[in-house]
């Protein structure tokens, strides 16, 4: 059995390396992007194999799924921006400084892999103080305990990074007239309506399930937000969300809700505790759910807008799909 698992691990590792190599070396843009997406999914399998379902879920949803969608829309942007219908513009495939770079990277790769094997072989256990803090915490899922309480400050900053990325994109979009990536179509293909009609409730339900279960099991605001973001992406792609030139106030509110409420909570904590970001005794669970909910909303809104590469979106003929 252990030989079998060794072979399986080796196959996964070699597969990852091969896909990464092809993604960085293949001349075509589209081929590289597709290879990278496959790389992302194999990576998710690897993490599941390593026994980290939380992370595998996040990797599959956010990293492989949404990054893949972003990259594909970058391919599409390369088409639209150059006014070219079918053919991707010559993505410069020239490779420069190949030998010095190869030398540096081979050396670095060799040193890194030796050291990393050594480091990972350290049999470090979870520090007892940390294990105790996590098990006695009012929240049940260790990851959620870390994300929202012990390292909540990082989480606050991380959603601020997401918001900052949108603000940066917003600046870029204000600077020039980039062609719309997802212009609404006159007709939607036949099968798309029924798919969305079924997918919407399923995705909403799954997102809420992930959000709720995150309190005690794998899942949480990030996975749920990413799923909702994916739903938003589907709505944008099928023209149910139309691009706007400005960000309506409701969307702005959605964007800043997560970091804003979290930061306000951090400040308010001084009224019931000595430290910023501390949870009120006895109300940890409720406060955590409230924060996670605002984070989920903000993540979903920001990811949808980042994907659409527009300042704002608004809904079009919602609910009257079959006149």
């Amino acid at each position: 059995m252990s030989l079998l698992s060794l072979i399986f691990d080796a196959l996964l590792g070699l597969g990852l390396l091969w896909l990464a190599w092809r993604a960085v070396s293949s001349p075509g843009l589209f081929a590289s992007v597709v290879l990278f997406m496959v790389f992302g999914f194999v990576m998710a399998i690897t993490w599941a194999r390593l026994g980290a379902p939380d992370l595998a879920l996040a990797e599959a949803a956010i990293s492989a799924g949404l990054t893949g969608a972003l990259l594909l829309s970058a391919c599409k942007a390369a088409l639209t921006d150059t006014g070219n219908d079918n053919e991707l513009p010559d993505e410069p495939s020239t490779v420069r400084r190949r030998w010095p770079a190869a030398l540096i990277c081979t050396g670095l790769g060799a040193v890194l892999s030796i050291v990393m094997i050594q480091v990972a072989a350290n049999r470090a256990a979870v520090p007892p103080a940390l294990a105790e803090a996590v098990t006695t915490h009012p929240l049940d899922n260790p990851i959620t305990v870390m994300l929202l309480d012990l390292r909540g400050y990082d989480t606050l900053l991380e959603v601020t990074v997401l918001l900052t990325a949108f603000l940066g994109v917003r600046i870029l979009l204000e600077q020039t007239e980039l062609p719309r990536l997802h212009a609404p179509r006159a007709t939607t293909p036949l099968m798309v309506d029924p798919l969305l009609a079924m997918a919407t409730p399923v995705l909403l339900m799954t997102a809420l399930y992930l959000f709720w279960t995150g309190m005690e099991a794998p899942g949480g605001a990030f996975q749920a937000g990413a799923l909702l973001g994916a739903l938003g992406v589907m709505y944008t792609l099928t023209g149910r969300f139309e691009p706007l030139d400005r960000t309506p106030v409701l969307l702005r509110l959605g964007l800043i809700l997560g970091p804003g409420m979290f930061a306000i909570f951090a400040c308010l904590a001084l009224t019931w505790s000595e430290w910023p970001l501390a949870y009120p005794a006895g109300a940890t669970g409720a406060a955590a759910v409230a924060i996670e909910f605002t984070l989920m909303i903000s993540i979903a809104v920001t990811l949808t807008l980042l994907f659409s590469a527009t300042p704002g979106l608004h809904a079009r003929h919602m609910g009257v799909r079959h006149p």
Binding site: P189, L190, M191, V192, L195, M198, A199, V202
Partner: peptide
């Protein structure tokens, strides 16, 4: 069921 649903639609779109 979900995979079939997605596959149906995407196969249809590709064929079209």
């Amino acid at each position: 069921a979900l995979a079939m649903m997605a596959a149906t639609v995407s196969a249809f779109l590709i064929a079209r």
